[in-house]
Amino acid sequence: MNAPLQNASSISCRDLTVSFRGGFEALHKLSLDIPSAEIMALVGPSGCGKTTLLRVLAGLELPTSGELKNEPPIQADQGQIAFVFQQATLLPWRTAIDNVALPLELLRNSAPEYHLTRKECLEIAKDKMQDVGLSDALDRYPRELSGGMKMRVSIARALVTKPKVLLLDEPFAALDEILRDQLGEMLLQLWDKQRFTAVMVTHNISEAVLLSHRIALIQQGQKKAVIPNPLPWPRTDAVRATSEFGELYRKVSLTLRES
């Protein structure tokens, strides 16, 4: 199935500043362009403002000054932007499929495409559960799911509204390395299918290198560099073994260390 062109929005930030009470500036005049239907990795030391930037992009935090534009514009009240938290953040009293259907329920009747019956919501949620490989865990409660499965449900929930922008805040940080690789691979498959614009905060440089089109380095609330990622697609395991992968890894970690 070919994805329609309008499935993603570009993001453009101009001079974003976020200052908190007490004068601390989490972001200082940060400008960043994220092309449509690409994956941008945000890396940087703890407390550099990556998460704040992500929250501003989500509309969860308002910038003190600066401008944020999406092209085509994003209607957040219609589920066009989605967020994956570091913790799966599933509602424990809902089954997996009901968790995935939650955004549809919350958005119900907010736009013509959300005039959905409960049955239709569950049908869509079921498809998403299939996309993340959890068709046989539909009716399980979060406490009955492993950490990796919870994160899959969380990603399915984020994608259930077919968002134009997907924001991920260290989504795999709490998982072990094997699971992290599996879920990264799954994320790329999902991206290939839906072609959303993705912004992913990560501490893991090899994750940033393997899963992105560009890598933005953030330091002290400012953009330090944007490094284009020339690695070939698809990003299979073989890509990891190439010298280009190693070079880019070194470049990112060297740039991070120069400070």
């Binding site: 989500a58 509309g59 957040a76 938290f85 509602l91 009293w93 919350l106 958005l107 907010s110």
Partner: peptide, 28 residues
């Protein structure tokens, strides 16, 4: 939970929906 309440904010869930689908179930 802060993330859960952010999730509801993200989808512009109003007071009533947040109360019914998030706060009340968590308070049981």
């Amino acid at each position: 939970d802060r993330d859960a309440s952010d999730l509801f904010r993200l989808y512009r869930a109003g007071r009533l929906k947040t109360l019914r689908s998030l706060q009340m179930p968590s308070a049981v």
